[in-house]
């Protein structure tokens, strides 16, 4: 593998350009010679340098940590959210995943809930609205008891963590043919619902979050594209858990006899 350092490939980039949410967009074609050691976003950095030098406005795209944890980045690469490598956010994708003469189509995340801001940048703020609807445990600062007062079975803690690993990038929504946000929403509901601390608000939280989700996003029809695209490989099981909890919540929250 070490022999591959510094290898240069030539790729054709078809990049989506759009000046604003209302403006029509279209593809722009660029040829790019690039080292296979470069990350995908470093390739876009280089392209932007060249555009700037030629007096053309650079391509707007978002990224921040470039370590696959902040969830800021994300584009469609050849029709796939975050591109070809499994369990890898766009910022962690490297050009050694591509070959000489490849054509690479780069588009913004496509989803009705994520309007385009400019070029490859989209507005994912509806995800925050879902969290605002109930993605928390209500405990004011100072009101907590000692952390070891309530043991949490290791299995529950580990499963909760698997859900909590969600980085909020929105790839699940972009990958879904229905633009549904079930995987994102269920990850938070699962994270909190699996922990003893999360029980008090479990049913009200589930109902509020699911119904807010439905204001912005499409319906789930079990394609499973979301978990395929997820950089953290969050399991479809959490959607099943959320669906079950939602049904129960609809009954419990009505306060029917004996249901509390």
């Amino acid at each position: 593998m070490s022999g591959s350092h510094g290898e240069t490939i030539n790729v054709t980039l078809k990049v989506w350009r759009q000046t604003s949410a209302d403006a029509p967009g279209g593809f722009e074609t660029h040829q790019q010679a690039i080292s296979t050691d470069a990350s995908f976003l470093e390739m876009l950095d280089l392209l932007n340098e060249e555009l700037n030098a030629a007096g053309k406005e650079p391509i707007a795209f978002e990224s921040d940590c470039r370590e696959g944890i902040c969830g800021t980045c994300g584009v469609m690469i050849n029709g796939r959210a975050h591109g070809p490598q499994k369990a890898t956010a766009t910022c962690q994708l490297h050009m050694r995943e591509f070959a000489d003469d490849d054509e690479i189509v780069i588009e913004p995340f496509r989803a009705t809930g994520f309007p385009v801001i400019r070029d490859l940048a989209v507005d994912r703020s509806p995800l925050d609205a879902i969290i605002e609807a109930g993605g928390y445990i209500s405990v004011n600062t100072g009101a907590a008891s000692d952390a070891n007062l309530t043991p949490v079975p290791k299995a529950a803690a580990d499963q909760a963590f698997d859900a909590a690993a969600c980085i909020g990038c929105g790839a699940c929504v972009a990958a879904c043919p229905n633009s549904a946000a079930q995987l994102f929403t269920s990850a938070k509901i699962g994270h909190l619902g699996l922990l003893p601390q999360g029980q008090a608000e479990r049913w009200s939280r589930t109902e509020a979050m699911v119904e807010t989700m439905e204001e912005f996003f499409g319906s789930c029809t079990n394609h499973g594209e979301c978990t395929e695209a997820c950089p953290k490989e969050i399991s479809l099981d959490f959607i099943a858990l959320m669906n079950r909890d939602y049904m129960k919540a609809k009954v419990k929250n009505r306060g029917l006899a004996g249901q509390h």
Binding site: V139, A143, A144, A147, A160, F161, A164, L195, Q197, G198
Partner: peptide, 10 residues
């Protein structure tokens, strides 16, 4: 204590 009560999965 605070983080654990919030559901931080330590």
């Amino acid at each position: 204590d605070q983080a654990t009560a919030q559901g931080v999965p330590f």
